[in-house]
Amino acid sequence: MKPAAFTYARPADWPEALALLGGGARAQAGGQSLGPMMNLRLAQPGAVADLRHLPGFAGVTVTGATCRIGAGTTHAAIEDGAVPGLLGRILAGVARRIAYRAVRNRGTIGGSFSHADPAADWVAVLPVFMGEAIAFGPAGERRIPLDGFLRGLFETALAPDELLRAIELPLLPAGTRWGHWKFCRKPGEFSKATACVLAVPGAPVRAVLAALDTPPLVIADAGALLLAAPEAEAARIVAGLGPLEPWRAALARTALQRAGLAAREDA
């Protein structure tokens, strides 16, 4: 479990990072997915560009009603309250359940999102927000809606010459209700079913169902999950996913029901 030989570069600015990318380098943020893949030689990039020292790569800024989270912001920083307000509370709750603290100390929100592992936590949560991914490429910044960012298993809307620079999320008004549920039996295990439900006052209730070995399913009008008896709606949604092993389908239904219940009870 030692990686094949590769060259390591630490770009000082974004243009240099893009140049390395153009030269075939693999971008690395926290390295919590790429590192093990390289150790197992499942990934054998000839060069790695370590993005962690790029200006503005990590950190959170709030402008007006928008929160911009640098792609290199660690799960641990989010867990520890880097994002303010209600949104921050919600994201901290998600971050807290990502693997172990040691992983969270290095793993980043942008790295995880652009790796696009279907079982990953941010992949299962970010598309629920009416936010945008900020891509940076040779032509500068480009905005991609979060619910259109993930295109498939380990596939995103990023062009090969683009990097994810930040995630922008709308701050959440008082009265927003939130539910999140994922099934893994021990920390560090990949989720077998994740669901989240977001009810922003005055907007349609949104939900995401994920970690089913398929790209996350965004449910744009998920109000029925907030009803007292969401079973039928959960069953309807899961039935629409196509064939799943029965136990996995049961977990998926439970995920939607329990995330809905949590949102319903979220005061």
Partner: peptide, 29 residues
């Protein structure tokens, strides 16, 4: 009783290649 299993497919391939797939009970379990 609850966690550990190395599944093999019909071709005799072991299917749990890391401790994220081969679950060991830890302090929390």
């Amino acid at each position: 009783a609850l966690y550990e299993e190395m599944p093999f497919d019909a071709a005799g391939q072991p299917l749990a290649g890391s401790l994220a797939d081969y679950l060991l009970p830890g302090a929390t379990e």
